[in-house]
Write a protein that binds this DNA or RNA. Structure first.
Lengths: 142, 142
DNA sequence: TTATAATTTTATAACAATTACAATTTTATT
DNA sequence: AATAAAATTGTAATTGTTATAAAATTATAA
């Protein structure tokens, strides 16, 4: 769970990213907070540790991370982008009550459909929307 | 392909929407232009026919349509939303060269994965990204 | 070390899509 | 025809993100 600074540095270098304090902190945050945070979530959270942090740096870093394949940018029918440190193919469920995002494994084989024969498919998003069990239970109690 | 005004009116009424000129025109546009247009696409196109049209009205109408299940709002990793008159479950492929959006049938059974047991799933997005055959061919020629 | 270059970070302003709002116009109802 | 309700409009506000240029930091070379 916990990562040493050395491990974080190696992780970035392996992805062709020069380590810097901000980059390491953002990476660390993403690894320890698997909540598919927004740029603002990350910014707000790191402000304690890095009081001079600017929003632009967070965006810059996340853009770089996305470029280098360290994060996947999620587009979940909301204006804010979210960032997922888990870049392997998996699905996302967004609860429209609590806004939480849940991961799920994709059980079926996502082969290229025949309509897209000859297309290059580089990226796949599978997003479900609805109400999570937690929020369903809350509703029942009240 | 072509729809009479009467048919368009009935379509809206069936979806619990009072027909108005703007609503009929936007519906007609969506039915005749299956390109997953943005609000701006629709606005620009209808400006000839309805010179007093405002962008706000386009948004209002599309929001209403989405509410009543007449359109599905697409979130395809871009800042602009797109609107699809086909609300049945199907996948979308977005070409990152020409920006065109292609439909495809979902061949596999999208049952609720076990991680989401007990969740209410109301909506499903399946989006692929890459380069369409058209753009691949263009690239080869040059 | 010191000077210089390259990179990273920052603050500020710009941008673009969408929404809020209140006024106006249109449509429906009495 | 008068009134109420609904739809449409123009304007301004909002918000997430990006562009830009200056400042700070880090790396490199003399």
């Amino acid at each position: 769970m916990e990562n040493t600074i050395k491990q974080l540095k190696e992780y970035l270098i392996k992805h062709d990213i020069k380590p810097s304090t901000i980059r390491l902190k953002i990476l660390e945050y993403l690894l320890n907070n698997r909540i598919h945070p927004t740029a603002d979530d990350i910014y707000k959270n790191l402000l304690d540790q890095i009081p001079t942090l600017s929003k632009t740096s967070v965006y810059n870093t996340l853009d770089l991370f996305a470029d280098k394949g360290v994060v996947k940018v999620l587009s979940l029918n909301e204006k804010e982008a979210r960032y997922d440190i888990n870049t392997r193919l998996h699905g996302h469920f967004k609860c429209r009550v609590c806004s939480r995002v849940y991961d799920f494994a994709i059980p079926y084989d996502v082969s290229i459909p025949h309509e897209l024969k000859g297309f290059d498919v580089n990226d796949i998003d599978i997003n479900f929307y609805g109400v999570c069990q937690n929020c369903k239970n809350q509703g029942r109690k009240s």
